[in-house]
Structures are given as structure tokens and as C-alpha cells.
Design a protein around this nucleic acid. Structure first.
Length: 463
RNA sequence: GGCGGAGUAGCAAAAUGGUUAUGCCGCGGCCUGCAAAGCCGUUUACGCCGGUUCGAUUCCGACCUCCGCCUCCA
């Protein structure tokens, strides 16, 4: 039985699918006008693992993660660059795929793009007009009449009367109410033709929130199981999605709302305005992508997670221990027996709101057991189980030596050069010439290469 | 002002009404030519004050501090 924390109910609940054996899940993805940062990495890794765990639990998963390829920031960036919007978005979609692939994220079953669903958005807006939930403003924009929707604020627990309208942002005079939000934006003269779609309300483009209502409905129906995203999307984005979808369709939109916590820097939210954000590809230039993935999964998905080089170094050292175990205690292929104590604890952890933190702790306990029983069949069994369980988290599937010897920085010490140094050292050791053998080892050590003498010979790794 | 989250050992991070989290780092030991890796051991952990309880880090109440959302944001 899987339990998950439902933001809508503010408590952990047992997961009950609408259709037995099926999970329909929608996650708000990227707005593609720039490179992805590690906050995005956390979001995709977290929901990747959630999808993996449902599959492991024998559910058929329909995982949809959208791509927002039309919005204000995209238009602004394309205009600044003097390039077509489609050229800009294609470029960053390609970059996004590179980054997410590197992180071992399995592609969602569907990755709809907003621009492909404008028709669906218009049809929802029409329904909202029919139900008296939408209105055209003097400036040609179409707005959602928030106060006409009963239950507005039920996700974010916001009470319209308590909000301080206009305190931070001036209220648009076109709105009937400060809380109303735009469904359709009328075309502006200086906007490129690429962003102008015909509609019953004139030439224009969709508001932000409507795309997710349309794309989720297209792939998963009017009522589906799980909707996820970063915690900041709770309000207003997800609140508005509920208003749109439930307002148009007259039935419950989503059963379980899941929100991942942020990556912080110095205990503050990572954001562009603070200038404290890190792009995935910058981080991957310094650290192996698996280290970043491990770092993310070591924390619970709802907790804030502080990012720094010190913390990634810590994660790197920890991951090294697991790979070192797999290297020194070769795993056998294992079919997971969920009744086996370690596996049972792993499963209990994952079933309990996807507690990867506890699941990772089980991996380390297996590593300890494997190391203690190195050379025995219990050891290789434990090592095999370690690898099999880690696979569910998308970790530890590479050849251990290849992982440990991979360097993020190229040194002049090629593998061949290292190997020949090891041969030279072996000869020195055979002659009990310890001074020479230690000189060679120190030379390698200075280059970040660590030698390990074992009964089977000398192996090496990069630090 | 409203709503929500959090304060755990040097660092990171979980669970839990009484029993070892886990990892990194440090220290000691075993092993090793010496190391590394591994194994063993190790540093009075639970913001503060009350309450409930045989017993609270864990439940209840007050307080302090921090963070997030209320505007685009994963």
C-alpha cells in the first residue's frame, strides 16, 4: 500500500487509483527560455523516482510532463536574441533533454507542448464563458471570474478576503476583481506573428494556467490521480488550474496533489533575482551527474535541500562508498524478494510517501553487510540486492571501476599512463624498493589518483 | 496581516512515546612494507519553557528563531 502526502488534504493518504492498476500523473514541467537549474533537476528526479516506484509496484503509469513553449519570458528572450520563438524553444528543449538524460531521468510517456494545445485551451475557455466563469475585459483580454468559483483557494488554503490586493503589484483596472487571472491575452501590435492565434475573442495567445488544464485533460481526462510540481506552483498556478478544470468540467480535477520542496542556497530560495542559482550543466562540469542525482534523493522530496559544493562533496564521498562496495564485492544478479528484511525495509520506506532518504539508508546497510561478507555468497547476494534496489532509484548501474575512474577534470594522467606507473610500482615493490614505490604512489596521489593494493592486484580511482 | 513549513550530534539528513537511523568528516584499533579500501570502536543529538505520561526528541500549549507562498518562478 502506497501512502502519499496530499497537499489538498494536508496529510498522508492511502493511494487509491481511479482505475485499478493505473496511475495517471501530470507534472508541470519547464518553460523553455533558458537552461535548467538544479531546482528543475530536483523536480524531474523526484517525479521520475515516484513514477519508477509506481511501476515497480505494478501500476501502469501514464506520466505526462508538459513543456511551456509560449509565454512572456519566451517572447522577451526571443526578441532580445532576434530569433524565432520556435528556434529558441527548440534549442532549450534540446538542452533540457541533454541535462535530464544525464541525470538518468526516464522520459515521461507524453511531453505535450503548449503551442500544440491552443485549441483545447480555447474549448475550455468557451465552457467557462458558458458557465459564467469568464468575461472579456475592455482591453480585449479574457479573465477568469475567481469569485464565481466556489472553493477557490481550497488547495493553497487562501481566503480571498484575507489577501492584500494590490499591496505588492498594482491591480489591473481591466480585472473585475484583483484575484482574477487571465485566460486569453489579446494580441499586441509589437508582438511577433508566431504568438498570435485566432480565437472567438480575437487574435491573441493563451494565459499561463490554461495550458495545464488543457494538456492534462487531453492526455489523462477531466479527472485523474496525481498532479505534481514545485511547491511554489501551489499558488496561484495549481489553484487556478483547479478553478479552470473544475469550473469547465463540473467535476473533481485531481485526487492527489504532490509538491516537491526547493533547493536553497544558504537557507534561502534559489532564484534568479538573488543571483544564487546554479545551472545543471555548470554543476555537471564539476560533479558526476549521478552525484547530483544521489544528492537529491538523499533528502526527502518535500524537505528543503541546501545546495553547496561542500554538500555535493559529501554526497560524492558517500556514493563512492557504495560503488566501492560493488567493486570489491561483485554483485550477482538478484531477483528482488520483497519479503527479505532489507528489501522489505526499502519497500516500506518507499511506500511511505516515497521516503528515498530511508531507502538510501538501507542501501548503506546492505553495503556494510556485503563488505563484511566479502568473498562469501552472502556478500555477493547482498551486493546484488544493493544494486537491484538502487536501480529503482536510478543509481549504481554503471561499472564500478568505470565510475570510480571517471574524472570530471581531464588530467594529463591517461589511463594508460596510470597503468604503466602501476606496473613500475609493482616491480619496485617486488624488489622491496619502498622508496620508489611510495614515490610513484605519491606522484599519482598529487594528481588526484588513489591506488589501492588488494590481494588481486592494485586498482586505482580518481578522487 | 493571512496561509504553510522547519529548528536533530562537527556537517548533511531520517524515523520514533521507552530499543543503533544513515552518510560524510575527525579520533583510536585491526589489516597493510607503509598506505588506500574494508572491518571494529568512538565524539552526553534532538531550539526554549511548561503540561500530559511510569517514561517525550517524538503528544499538547506558550515562546524564540529561520524559511516559503500571498507577483513570474521547480
Amino acid at each position: 500500500m502506497i501512502t502519499l502526502y496530499n497537499t489538498l488534504a494536508r496529510e498522508k493518504q492511502e493511494f487509491k487509483p481511479i482505475t485499478p492498476g493505473v496511475v495517471n500523473m501530470y507534472v508541470c514541467g519547464m518553460t523553455v527560455y533558458d537552461y535548467c537549474h538544479i531546482g528543475h533537476a530536483r523536480m524531474v528526479v523526484v517525479f521520475d523516482v515516484i513514477a519508477r516506484w509506481f511501476r515497480e509496484s505494478n501500476y501502469k503509469v501514464n506520466y505526462v510532463r508538459n513543456i511551456t513553449d509560449i509565454d512572456d519570458k519566451i517572447i522577451k528572450r526571443a526578441t532580445e536574441n532576434g530569433e524565432l520563438i520556435s528556434a529558441l524553444t527548440e534549442r532549450f528543449i534540446a538542452a533540457m533533454n541533454e541535462d535530464f538524460d544525464a541525470l538518468g531521468v526516464i522520459r515521461p510517456d507524453h511531453e505535450p507542448r503548449a503551442t500544440e494545445h491552443v485549441g483545447g485551451m480555447q474549448s475550455i475557455i468557451s465552457k467557462l464563458f458558458d458557465r459564467g466563469l469568464a468575461y472579456s475585459a475592455p482591453n480585449g483580454d479574457v479573465y477568469y471570474a475567481v469569485r464565481q468559483f466556489q472553493g477557490y483557494g481550497k488547495l493553497s488554503r487562501k481566503n480571498l478576503a484575507d489577501q492584500r490586493a494590490g499591496e505588492r503589484v498594482e491591480v489591473d483596472a481591466n480585472k473585475q476583481d484583483a484575484a482574477d487571472f487571465v485566460l486569453w491575452k489579446s494580441a499586441k501590435a509589437d508582438e511577433p506573428a508566431e504568438v498570435k492565434w485566432p480565437s472567438p475573442w480575437g487574435l491573441g495567445r493563451p494565459g499561463w494556467h490554461i495550458e495545464c488544464s488543457a494538456m492534462s485533460c487531453h492526455h489523462l481526462g477531466e479527472h485523474f490521480d496525481i498532479h505534481g510540481g514545485g511547491e511554489d506552483l501551489q499558488f496561484p498556478h495549481h489553484e487556478n488550474e483547479i478553478a479552470q478544470s473544475e469550473g469547465a468540467h463540473g467535476q473533481q480535477y485531481v485526487n492527489y496533489w504532490l509538491h516537491n520542496g526547493f533547493i536553497n542556497v544558504d537557507n534561502e530560495k534559489m532564484s534568479k533575482s538573488l543571483g544564487n542559482f546554479f545551472i545543471i550543466r555548470e554543476v555537471l562540469a564539476k560533479y558526476d551527474a549521478e552525484v547530483l542525482r544521489f544528492f537529491i534523493l538523499r533528502a526527502h522530496y518535500r524537505s528543503p535541500l541546501n545546495y553547496s559544493d561542500v554538500h555535493l562533496d559529501d554526497a560524492k564521498n558517500a556514493l563512492n562508498r557504495l560503488y566501492t562496495t560493488l567493486k570489491s564485492v561483485p554483485p550477482v544478479d538478484v531477483e528482488i524478494d520483497w519479503a527479505e528484511p532489507y528489501a522489505a525495509r526499502f519497500k516500506a520506506a518507499m511506500d511511505d510517501d516515497f521516503s528515498t532518504t530511508e531507502a538510501v539508508a538501507v542501501l548503506f546497510e546492505l553495503a556494510l553487510y556485503a563488505n563484511k561478507h566479502a568473498g562469501m555468497s552472502e556478500g555477493s547476494q547482498a551486493s546484488g540486492l544493493l544494486k537491484a534496489l538502487a536501480k529503482i532509484l536510478g543509481l549504481l548501474q554503471r561499472d564500478p571501476s568505470a565510475y570510480l575512474q571517471a574524472g570530471t577534470t581531464d588530467s594529463e594522467w591517461t589511463n594508460e599512463k596510470i597503468e604503466s606507473a602501476i606496473v613500475a610500482r609493482k616491480e619496485a615493490r617486488a624488489a622491496k624498493n619502498w622508496a620508489e614505490s611510495d614515490r610513484i604512489r605519491n606522484e599519482l596521489s598529487a594528481a588526484g589518483i588513489v591506488l589501492e593494493d588488494t590481494p588481486q592486484g592494485t586498482s586505482w580511482r580518481r578522487e
